[in-house]
């Protein structure tokens, strides 16, 4: 699936998006897989209270299922307006 990163998550991980092969069933499992990969992921996901997630462009929770998901995005709390 496509995994996208925005704002300081993008800067810490170093890419705006990437294709990730995963068997993770939930967002939380995907986060654990990514954190185990490299230090830059561990740094980006160090404080999960500051991480928001969208699955297929809908805001959701870490416990959300990834069944059928095409696109997962991670980003900090939003600061528009």
């Amino acid at each position: 699936m496509q995994v996208l990163y925005f704002a300081w998550m993008r800067e810490r991980i170093g890419v705006p998006k990437e294709e990730v092969e995963t068997s993770a069933e939930t967002v939380a499992e995907l986060v654990e897989e990514l954190k185990a990969r490299e230090a830059r992921y561990a740094a980006a996901f160090a404080d999960m209270a500051s991480v928001r997630v969208a699955v297929d462009q809908e805001l959701t929770e870490l416990s959300a299922s990834l069944a059928g998901a095409r696109e997962v995005a991670f980003f900090p709390p939003m600061t528009g307006g």
Partner: peptide, 25 residues
Amino acid sequence: FLKSRAPFWKKEAGDGWVDAREADE
């Protein structure tokens, strides 16, 4: 709702990414 539910992020020259305000939530 736009302030904290629409995916926008502000980055200030010099100061970096703007923190979300608890008051907005």
